[in-house]
Design a binder for these strands. Structure first.
Length: 776
DNA sequence: GACGGGCCGTTTTTT
DNA sequence: ACGGCCCGTC
């Protein structure tokens, strides 16, 4: 396969500038990909000159506009492919764009500069590493390495990691980088109040240390590139001249650094086309600035602003519900989605179903029942997603799906290249490819154990520092001398010899074979094969998979370059079952059926979001809800539970305010338990009374589970307009005949604090919550 | 260098 | 409640 980040490397100095600029004949028939566009889309595609902002609502065909625009520019011969820059946020989006472009215009699409901000930055940075204080072959640290490094610096600075959590400072540094701030530019106020007022100093040290290691982190890819463009007008001009057309996807997600990066690159031609949707901005917490989209017209006077409001994705009720919800946000440019295309006219499109359930378990049960029912209606699990606010919510659904034998996949778990064994293996490869990679050396010099403990390593490090040599060279020196004990000396000599030998094989052996050889000869693979722990076999498999992944590259360097930026394996095969993922992860995707569980105050909107960010965060949470709803093509289901166990505490929960904000017209609200009903219109106007909405009442401190029916919920709270179900469930006796809405009649076998074991006449033996049954 | 007890944190996450 | 991480002990 080809590496999607191996952007075809045309010489920067265009061999024949403008040579191919002969326009296509005016009478040539329009290419097929141009004719299927609606007028707004077409306008967005054909407005090639000058700044353009495309406000593209969910499901309005933004990717199509972007790809078609590139195709159109090239078709009209307005420039050549390698003079077009198309930027995305994720590898997934870049891959998708490249594929679609390829299907429109064929292999010339390969030459377009298309990639993520980071991949494109890296491409530029590799050319000018020296200008950023880096040397050729610099490495890119992953999150783990970054943190380790910072921790070390903080400890050296005498900070107590308990009092000053490295993670906190790391986050702060990243936010600075998001804003394009180098250590010398961080505002005074910002520096105080963190890491014992030494945050700025530590940031500077961190950056210095990275340069010493000839490394950079992800943020640096942008920051260094930005710095080069700012400080070296000659270099900047080269790129400014080169990129005749620039296109940006998901513009609402750009941070300040990316904004500046774009502004610099577009400074000359100003043919900058940004596509985005302020209503889908959900990443402010990692530095995204919706402001970028809001100020586009100011920054680029005379910019064309084109709105795409025809939604081709979602059934009208789903669209209606989503639109009504997002209208509660004050801070937006304002767009209204209109149902269009095949979905628009279906008079039978079912409403969004909103359901209140007793607890999380009941909710999971309900979701999976619905999924099974939909399967019979011709909507299989493969087109269905369950989108949760936070990962901890996934477990209940996994349990239930597994119990019911419904296939599913969790998206967004720990990633392949972040696993310990993979990171170790990569360190071997890095060290072989790049002998001055000290971090790699440190990581694996004693893995597997080679009796090279802390003490020996200290000596190597001291020597390396004194001589200004990489650790591997220092080790080579010391493997012959008196500084180390004989045992360590021997081990070190063997290790260095191994690395040297592997290094000699680079280029001679196919990279996959080289990789396999290294894992064998180093004893690393053997280490896991000998390991008795339960996860060891999995790790061995992962190592084999790694070798397989390397096989797809032509050289070791190409592979390492690739994985530095693409920290995931290509998703294998089509999704077979229900997709379980976070709302954040779902952006940009679509499904026939979407379940949105956990719509409860404190979970969604998440309490911490509100605590930290107030109104602005509430609106972001609401956008997240909007993103969730608009993922659905045919059916959408929203649910909430009245009781939820959090850290093993049962807590009463209130339906999310977002539930109230869904319009009655497109929504069918119901509840198995009579819990719903919840929320009165106008609760917000009632001073005091609904203040409890944000307070979390402990449901029962004595820990006897969620049983006991609705007794604890109803009295005095006013939360539930439902029938008073006080006492229900508590008085269910063993042996009693009961009725359950789903399972019908049955006899109670046992009552464990409200969890009933019931032998149902039709459905068989089930465990149900007392609140679900009534005496029969 | 391996085990184990105590302590902390427990929204979202790409590159 | 639980898991991960750090540090201490053997």
């Amino acid at each position: 396969m080809t590496d999607p980040f191996d952007l075809t490397d045309e010489p920067l100095d265009d061999p024949a500038p403008g040579a191919a600029a002969a326009p296509a004949p005016a009478d040539a028939p329009p290419p097929p990909w141009l004719t299927g566009l609606n007028p707004e889309q077409r306008h967005a595609v054909e407005t090639t000159e000058g700044p353009v902002l495309v406000l593209s609502g969910a499901g309005t065909g933004k990717t199509r506009v972007l790809t078609t625009r590139v195709a159109y520019i090239l078709h009209r011969r307005l420039t050549r492919p390698w003079r077009v820059l198309a930027v995305t946020f994720t590898n997934r989006a870049a891959r998708e764009m490249r594929e679609r472009l390829g299907s429109m215009i064929g292999p010339v699409s390969e030459s377009v500069w298309l990639g993520t901000f980071h991949a494109l930055s890296l491409k530029i940075l590799r050319r000018h590493a020296g200008l950023a204080g880096l040397r050729d072959g610099f490495t890119i640290l992953d999150a783990d390495d970054q943190l380790r490094l910072l921790k070390q610096l903080m400890t050296d600075a005498g900070l107590d990691p308990k009092r000053e959590p490295p993670k906190g400072l790391m986050g702060r540094i990243q936010r600075w980088k998001d804003r394009g701030l180098t250590p010398d530019r961080v505002p005074e106020d910002d520096v105080k109040g963190a890491a014992g007022r030494r945050a700025g100093d530590l940031y500077a040290r961190y950056q210095a240390r990275l340069l010493e290691l000839n490394a950079c982190d992800f943020g640096d890819l942008l920051l260094h590139t930005l710095g080069i463009l700012q400080k070296h007008p000659d270099v900047a001009e080269e790129y400014q001249t080169r990129f005749d057309y620039i296109l940006v996807d998901e513009y609402q997600d750009t941070n300040v650094a990316q904004y500046l990066w774009l502004r610099l690159l577009a400074a000359r031609h100003k043919n900058l086309c940004c596509v985005g949707d302020d209503d889908q901005s959900i990443y402010s917490w990692r530095g995204a600035e919706v402001g970028n989209i809001l100020r586009f017209e100011t920054d680029y006077p005379g910019a064309a602003v084109i709105r795409l409001e025809r939604n081709y994705r979602s059934a009208p009720p789903i669209l209606g519900a989503a639109s009504a919800l997002i209208r509660h946000n004050a801070d937006r440019l304002g767009k209204d989605l209109i149902a269009a295309g095949a979905t628009a006219d279906d008079p039978d499109a079912p409403p969004v179903k909103v359901r209140g359930l007793w607890d999380g378990e009941a909710e999971a049960r309900w979701v999976v029942e619905e999924i099974e029912a939909l399967g019979h209606e011709g909507l299989p699990a493969a087109g269905t997603a369950i989108l949760v606010r936070a990962t901890f919510q996934m477990r209940e659904f996994e349990d239930r799906l597994m119990a019911c034998g419904v296939p599913y996949q969790v998206i967004g778990g720990p990633r392949f290249y972040e696993r310990l064994e993979i990171r170790d293996a990569l360190a071997y490869l890095r060290l072989v490819a790049q002998p001055d990679d000290d971090l790699a050396f440190e990581r694996i010099v004693n893995t597997p154990k080679r009796s090279l403990g802390e003490a020996s390593l200290q000596i190597v490090q001291k020597h390396a520092r004194a001589e200004g040599k990489p650790l591997l060279n220092a080790a080579r020196d010391l493997s012959d001398g008196d500084d180390l004990k004989a045992r360590a000396k021997k081990a070190l000599a063997a290790f260095v010899a191994d690395v040297d030998r592997w290094r000699a094989l680079v280029g001679g052996l196919p990279p996959a074979e080289l990789c396999a050889t290294i894992l064998e000869e180093s004893g690393y693979a053997a280490m896991w094969k000998a390991d008795k722990s339960p996860d060891a076999p999995g790790r061995v498999e992962n190592l084999e998979e790694l070798v397989g992944a390397v096989a797809e590259f032509e050289s070791l360097d190409a592979f390492l370059e690739h994985i530095a930026l693409v920290m995931e394996t290509e998703s294998k095969g089509a999704a077979a079952g229900v997709t379980l993922m976070t709302l954040h992860g779902a952006k940009g995707l679509e499904f026939d059926v979407v379940f949105l569980p956990g719509w409860e105050e404190d979970i969604f909107p998440h309490r911490r979001a509100l605590e930290e960010g107030g109104q602005a965060s509430l609106e972001e949470e609401r956008r997240l809800a909007y993103v969730g709803l608009t993922r659905a093509r045919k059916r959408a289901f929203v649910s909430f539970a009245a009781n939820r166990r959090i850290y093993n505490n049962w807590q009463a929960s209130l339906p999310s305010r977002f539930v109230d904000e869904l319009p009655d017209d497109f929504v069918e609200k119901a509840s198995d338990t009579g819990l719903y009903g919840a929320v009165t219109a106008g609760f917000a106007e009632e001073p005091g009374g609904w203040g409890t909405r944000h307070a979390r009442r402990s449901l029962n401190g004595n820990g006897n589970g969620g049983g006991g029916g609705g007794t604890r919920l109803s009295p005095g709270t006013g939360s539930w307009k439902a029938r008073d179900r006080s006492g229900e469930g508590t008085d269910i006796a063993v042996g009693q005949r009961v009725f359950h809405q789903k399972f019908g009649y049955g006899r109670v076998l046992s009552n464990d604090g409200g969890k009933l074991a019931v032998d149902f006449e039709k459905a068989g033996r089930k465990t149900v919550v007392a609140g679900f049954v009534e005496a029969a």
